[in-house]
Amino acid sequence: MQATLISEINEARAKRRPVAVVTGLGDHAQRLVTADNAGGDPLGEAISNRFRSGKSGIVTDENGEHFIQVYVPPPRLVIIGAVHISQALAPMARSCNFDVTVIDPRTAFATPERFAETKLIADWPEDVLKDAPLDAYTALAALTHDPKIDDIPLKAALEAGCFYVGALGSRKTHAKRAARLMEVGITQSQMDGIDAPIGMDIGAANPAEIAVAVLARVIEALRKAPLEQVAAA
């Protein structure tokens, strides 16, 4: 492997861009493939599938064996709202290897005491997301039920193709939310992709149980229907 290839891979990883290195195991030839140029690659379909699954492996064609090494960004969970559910959800998600960020502009909620081990940003989501944009390898859970705080990141998550988008609130709250978001350009099919009422239906009865229900849905989205949007991202 050439040293320049290693720096290109590392640069892509730092920017959370999925890349693949294809190595001919017979001729030792190597090439870098990005999500943008996978379509033109002879192994494009196999590479795109591996971008979705995040799994590296060997494919065999008439030219022999090729090893496709994919580097996909680690999954992130962005939680909007430093609320009670978030206090339970953040550590559980971290133990499942998610890179967790909690965002809430309300400084009464977003205190280090309430979120000791968690990356917590006491600012408006729209300002935070400007510097750290959402992507297909990110899940977003909006938990404030305040439209002023939740709506903009929900719209951003749908537009970025986040692999999971969930929003807390009753069916009635969600219907109002749908009306607002569709006025600003979100389609019905995008709205249908939101997990609302949030979380798997396990009869969750308190914040910690709701956190379990939400995390179950996030993991399901990651593992069972992974990253459908990533090729387009």
Binding site: I6, S7, N10, A14, P73, P74, R94, N97, F98, V100
Partner: peptide, 20 residues
């Protein structure tokens, strides 16, 4: 996989440091 801290101690980051 240490997803929460992907790039500090993994082989490729170290490879780049050692190479340079």
């Amino acid at each position: 996989m240490s997803a929460s801290n992907p790039s500090s101690h993994d082989a490729l980051s170290v490879a780049q440091d050692w190479q340079s």
